[in-house]
Design a protein around this nucleic acid. Structure first.
Lengths: 137, 137
DNA sequence: CGGCATCCGCTACGATACTG
DNA sequence: CAGTATCGTAGCGGATGCCG
């Protein structure tokens, strides 16, 4: 039975372990982009009521209309968000997490909790590292 | 007491909730890039022995020397990886997770487990979405 | 109101060649 | 063996303007 790390099978070779190439990487790349986690976070604030496009936009400072549209479209494509379009005047569009989208909240929270508890130390390390680099140059 | 979601404080306003702007995003951006999680995964395979540059490289198919160097340097900058340089001939350089780096393994695993269990459904949704889009065009 | 089209700069990433 | 330097490319993401 092959070893597995972070959901990825590992092949043992004489020269050491080798990770198998990675389809799940395409999921991480999506979720790791600039806005996706923020949009999911906003949608998780009202688990039972859909949110309007404008409310999402106001809730995420500095996101452009274009990037919010693209991010929502990608989440919809992944089956994590459902989109409801109402042909009124002016039109109303609402978004909500699907069951699959909701299923990711708990695992995601485990990870973001770690980030919340650690990011200040990380930023401190960065400043220290950059300062040391300055001195060497 | 303000609400909090995914480690981010939420401000309630008359027009809806607003996420506070996000320093932790810089951590997610780093971890979400193309190679970081893979490198951390490789290093976590031998929690108690450092790994050589070449072993890491062989373990991650398709990573270029340049990107492995950059990824390791960024992880070192974040205090997640320690680098040990030995001035031999030929030189030997070894890397290992720091305590901070190890502290992220469990929360990360919670998240990557979800990805492992879900990514096939997600890819199926993508294919379906793209096919439906084709039909509309 | 929501969203698409267009233009454009920036940076992540890759390929290659060269040093200690 | 490990790392740096250089160059080229692709795509993310921002700004703006127009349409239902």
């Amino acid at each position: 039975m092959p070893r597995e790390i972070n959901g990825r099978p590992v092949i043992e070779t004489p020269r050491g372990p080798v990770l198998t190439p990675c389809a799940p990487g395409s999921v991480l790349a999506r979720l790791g982009d600039k806005w996706t986690i923020l949009v999911v976070s906003m949608l998780s604030l009202s688990p039972d009521a859909p949110m309007r496009f404008g409310a999402l936009r106001r809730g995420i400072p500095d996101i452009s209309q274009r990037m919010l549209t693209l991010t929502l479209r990608n989440l919809e494509r992944d089956g994590l968000v459902a989109r409801h379009y109402y042909t009124e005047l002016p039109p109303r569009v609402e978004y909500e997490l699907t069951d699959r989208g909701k299923s990711m909240l708990k695992p995601l929270a485990a990870f973001t909790d770690w980030i919340r508890d650690t990011w200040q130390d990380i930023e401190a390390s960065r400043r220290e590292f950059d300062a040391a680099e300055q001195r060497r140059i």
